[in-house]
Amino acid sequence: MDFIRFVGQQCARDISKFDFFRPGDNVAVTYEIVEGDKKREQTFRGDIIKIKGEGISRSFTIRKISDGIGVERIFPFNCPALTNIVNLKKGRVRRAKLYYVRGQVGKAARIREKKFVQSIAENLKGKKRKWTFDNSVLYV
């Protein structure tokens, strides 16, 4: 029995309420930050450029352009500070790690959007991660 995996599963947080996303998607991540003894929420919206790791150490990298300067943040999926993840746009990309966007500026840095016909989220009871595409292929 893989005890390391077992411990990871036992200590993992429930991330099923977050939207499913893949590299290239435009995502809004809401997380808590502590200032002194106060807590407040902050949202970071950007493109997912990398999802790496497995189990409890799985993490994603999100990038946005802020005032003309590229800003990246890395979040572990199991980070307790994460409060919400909303997938706003599916991106049409051809690779899993989008490092190439780091070298691009302006219009070139945009990621083309993948258009959906409809979301069948409501049919699948809370599992927002399922969508249909033009060809009606169910994508899980």
Partner: peptide, 18 residues
């Protein structure tokens, strides 16, 4: 068994040994 990391109550990642 090996090492892994766990999040504590304060939200910090803690390196642990199983």
């Amino acid at each position: 068994v090996g090492m892994t990391s766990i999040y504590n109550a304060a939200g910090q990642s803690v390196g642990c040994t199983v």
